[in-house]
Design a protein around this nucleic acid. Structure first.
Lengths: 111, 111
DNA sequence: TTTATTAATCGTACATTTGCGATGAACTAT
DNA sequence: ATAGTTCATCGCAAATGTACGATTAATAAA
């Protein structure tokens, strides 16, 4: 890719929102988050039983969610227990809430 | 890609959330939405003046946002006026609000 | 020590995204 | 008709994402 020469500078909020959005931009990651949030399961193994995908693929998606900060993992040998990262979850909640705040959007009508 | 043989089936909500999330998973699209939402501009030309990117690239991002349903365009020859799609914006608001609802997340603590 | 279990990581193949310049389409104005 | 304006689309190149099976690492159990 011919990467921008004049490098657009983004704000922390823009980068942060985009990063979280990217993490939840795949339906299987939405499902994983919903499963974790509803406490239907926690160990990787339980996820691989429920979701018909290769173990390595699930693991890859878990890594993406970990990197986003939306979940956290606790090593519990030889298993790993995952769950929602509550603080970051709340942050995401208020970030998206603020962004999509209805009052902000289209104060005036273009049409 | 060796596409899933056992094809995971996703719910409409999972697909919908992922689709909107994908649309806002790039910082420049966040910026465009914020500009449109705050009514600082509306025509493509105004965006290309503010954002240091090729006109074709901006147009591409606008298309992605259009496809997501988050914005709408009104042809106003030879210009095109874009703005937030209010109804879908509200839908996204409640969808993300419901998803990130703090009460839902981690009712019990894993740790 | 050996074996079993669990999950991460590696390597590969292919799809999709992102950026650009160039070109094209639609409409205005002269 | 001709030229100008505005924006979409095409074609390309490179990066990133997604899925799989195979392998490795860490620990528990025998």
């Amino acid at each position: 890719m011919k990467r921008t020469l004049s490098a657009v500078e983004y704000s922390g909020e823009e980068e942060g929102m985009a990063s979280i959005a990217k993490a939840i931009s795949h339906p299987v990651r939405i499902r994983i988050l919903k499963l974790l949030a509803s406490q239907q399961c926690c160990f990787t193994g339980e996820l691989t039983e429920i979701i018909p995908m290769a173990q390595s693929t699930i693991s890859q998606h878990l890594k993406a969610l970990l990197d986003s900060g939306l979940i956290q993992g606790e090593i519990n040998p030889p298993k790993v227990r995952y769950c929602i990262h509550r603080e970051n979850w709340r942050k995401a909640y208020s970030m998206f809430g603020g962004f999509f705040n209805a009052d902000l959007a289209c104060r005036y009508d273009c049409h």
